[in-house]
Design a binder for these strands. Structure first.
Length: 110
DNA sequence: AGTCTGACTAGTA
DNA sequence: CTACTAGCCAGAC
């Protein structure tokens, strides 16, 4: 990875690579970045995604259960679910249905 | 330089 | 089943 880039930039870079209609988990990204179980860092980077000029599809990043844990950070809790549904995903009770089917692992796909 | 925090995860009770 | 604990690590104070 480019060490000139901060941890955030690295996370954004991976998140931007998530294919349309796919999702991944914080842990998967953390692992890909070599941070191991530092899934918190990924979520934290997302919390600061507003600092990036890029359009970060943070709605495609959820916890390992496919639950929309970060929906509250989108300005309004419904935005995240709405974006995911717009990409063909099904959300029920704040949880992605068939999550395994739509899961995208950067460590494997890249 | 030390302490606190967090959109997580895995393990234990 | 739910509740709680500990580990994780980079950035803000």
């Amino acid at each position: 990875m480019d060490k000139n880039k901060g941890f955030f930039e690295s996370v954004y870079d991976v998140v931007e690579l998530i294919p349309h209609g796919r999702v991944t988990s914080y842990g998967a990204i953390a692992k890909y970045l070599g941070s191991g179980g530092a899934a918190r860092m990924v979520g934290w980077a997302m919390n600061a995604c507003h600092s990036s000029e890029k359009n970060i599809p943070a709605h495609r990043v959820v916890n390992r259960l496919g639950m929309l844990s970060g929906k509250s950070h989108f300005g309004h809790p419904d935005i995240m679910q709405r974006l995911l549904e717009n990409e063909g995903l099904t959300i029920f009770n704040d949880q992605i249905q068939n999550f395994e089917k739509f899961f995208w692992d950067p460590a494997k796909e890249l």
